[in-house]
Amino acid sequence: MTAAHTIPMTNTTSSPAASGPVKEARKRTWWGKNGHQATVWMLRVALFLAFLVVWYVASLIVPNPMFISDPIAVWDQLVEWIVDGTIVFHTWITVQEVALGYVIGVLTGAVAGFILASIHLIYSVFEPFMMALYSIPKVALAPLFIVWFGIGIDMKIILAAVSVFFLVFLNTAAGVREVERGLIDAVRLMGGTKRDVAFKVVLPASMAGLLTGLKVSIPYALIGAVIGELVASNRGLGYLINDSASQFNTAGVFAAVAVLTVLAMLLNGVVALISARTGRWKPIGDA
């Protein structure tokens, strides 16, 4: 919202706003508004360049290119893969796994969290089991999923979905359980049914929890998918890392990791976008 925005209102003497704050226009210069951000970004670029320089110098000192390779070799490998389509092919596979796993995990986690947490008895029964399953490293489930789903894309999707499911489930459930008692009572006083309470209070009130779940689980979808690829696969960025390593192509490992990093940064960008939206307490579809 710009600083020049004002709220028009009729200010009669009896109006409750008479003793309240007022909004006034205050123009700021470009540097006043963006100076801090610009400085931060310049320092980030500088840090990245410094890292490349240190890496390059280190590669001159360490004799064996198998250990840390060097930035130029990694760059050449990247260019080669971009040109021959390797990057696009494997990245697309990983992106599909992440996206599908995320959607499945979110849908099941949100619905299960909302329903189970709405019924106190059921939640009390389920909670310790859910916490236990949440706590085990998901990579431990990979062998089981390979038996059930093979080593194709399905197994990675399920692994990503499972990682996402628990985070969304637990956050949604926490949101449901933290709904203020007073708000529920307010609806009961209006003669509202259990259904009214669920849809007009618990659902919108638990949105904050759900959105937290949506946010924190995004990186875990990527982690789940890539772990699946590392365990067993013939496609995807995780496979590309494994494959390069098995050929002692350290530059290839770094190149694949670099692509993975970019992908993670893009996903974190999505997270930041969601955060910006949830930061403001806005109505979220409770029609």
Binding site: E180, G182, L183, D185, A186, V187, L189, M190, G191, G192, D196, K200, V201, P204, A205, M207, W281, K282, P283, I284, D286
Partner: peptide
């Protein structure tokens, strides 16, 4: 709903505007 109760603490729904809060009993 035949008995109205204004409780000691505020229980307006934070995600609804004043208008939609006031409409709520009518909605129900």
């Amino acid at each position: 709903p035949e008995i109205g109760y204004l409780t000691q603490s505020d229980t307006l729904m934070p995600w609804r505007t004043v208008l939609r809060n006031v409409e709520m009993p009518l909605e129900i």
